[in-house]
């Protein structure tokens, strides 16, 4: 991909107070120079970074996001960064569903003594995003479609089912369950992927319907998806009580969102 002419990316960096923020300060004290594209938001622990907030930053048009914490094993709060790792992995997976490069989201570890490393990371990440271009360039869709997908992605990450799975990943894959069994990482990733896909598609349908009453064909056209796929998901949405049939036009039922 060739870099966009004159494109200067807007990047947010979520930095934990104890390691990476201190590392960023050290880069300053040591006068390591790096590109001025990153705006830092300080949090006490990288585990404060809610997946939905990361998505919100993309919704607001940011081109890249860095989440930096203490090195694994060094977390000021003992285990926070292990959760961050799992959460960011999930957001990356959702970004792929949107059609965005997962490289737009970086997770890495910077200790309080790694000022030079922090500067290098910012430099490298800024360059990566500059090459990717403005947000959505790689998604091959119009701006409206991108907005729908990002909104659906954000809603996906607020779904309890997804959040519950993310929160349990360490326990499920690392410890044995009450039956003495352990879920393999592969099995878990597969389950996670399927759950994300399903939630994401369903959210997209809901957003596409909006306040209208639409047939499956109309929804599929709006989403640029196959009617078969829409049908499968709309049945599930109907089952969840999130859409209902409000009338039939010709042979096609029309669906409307159930609000509240």
């Amino acid at each position: 991909m060739t870099p966009q002419e004159g494109f200067s990316p807007d990047i947010i960096g979520f930095l934990c107070n104890w390691c990476s923020y201190a590392g960023a300060d050290l880069a300053g004290v040591s006068r390591f120079q790096y590109p001025p594209n990153v705006r830092i938001i300080r949090v006490m622990c990288s585990a404060r970074v809610d997946p939905a907030i990361v998505l919100e930053a993309f919704v607001r048009g940011l081109d890249g996001i860095m989440v930096l914490g203490c090195h694994l094993g060094d977390c000021h709060y003992l285990t926070g960064n292990y959760y961050t790792e799992k959460r960011v992995k999930t957001v990356k997976s959702v970004l792929e569903s949107v059609g965005l490069s997962p490289e737009r989201l970086l997770i890495d570890w910077v200790s309080a003594s790694e000022g030079e490393r922090f500067a290098a990371l910012v430099k490298e990440f800024t360059e990566t995003i500059r090459e990717l271009g403005a947000l959505g360039k790689e998604a091959n869709c119009d701006i409206q479609q991108l907005k729908t997908r990002l909104a659906a992605a954000k809603e996906t990450l607020t779904r309890d089912r997804i959040r519950w799975l993310v929160g349990r990943e360490r326990e499920l894959t690392e410890d044995k369950n009450v039956f003495g069994e352990r879920v393999t990482q592969e099995e878990f990733d597969q389950l996670m992927f399927q759950t994300i896909e399903k939630e994401f598609e369903k959210r997209k349908i809901l957003i596409s319907i909006g306040d209208d009453a639409l047939s499956i064909k109309e929804i599929a056209r709006k989403m640029e998806a196959s009617p078969g796929k829409v049908l499968r998901n709309i049945v599930s949405l109907e089952h969840d009580g999130l859409v209902s049939v409000v009338g039939i036009e010709g042979n096609s039922p029309k669906y409307r969102r159930v609000r509240g």
């Binding site: 949090v43 006490m44 622990c45 585990a47 404060r48 970074v49 809610d50 997946p51 939905a52 907030i53 000021h76 709060y77 285990t79 926070g80 959760y83 959460r87 607020t158 309890d160 089912r161 959040r163 519950w164 993310v166 929160g167």
Partner: peptide, 14 residues
């Protein structure tokens, strides 16, 4: 509580 915020960022029901 140490104030890390990990619980809230992961709460399924926010």
């Amino acid at each position: 509580c140490k104030g890390c915020g990990a619980c809230g960022a992961g709460c399924p029901h926010k």
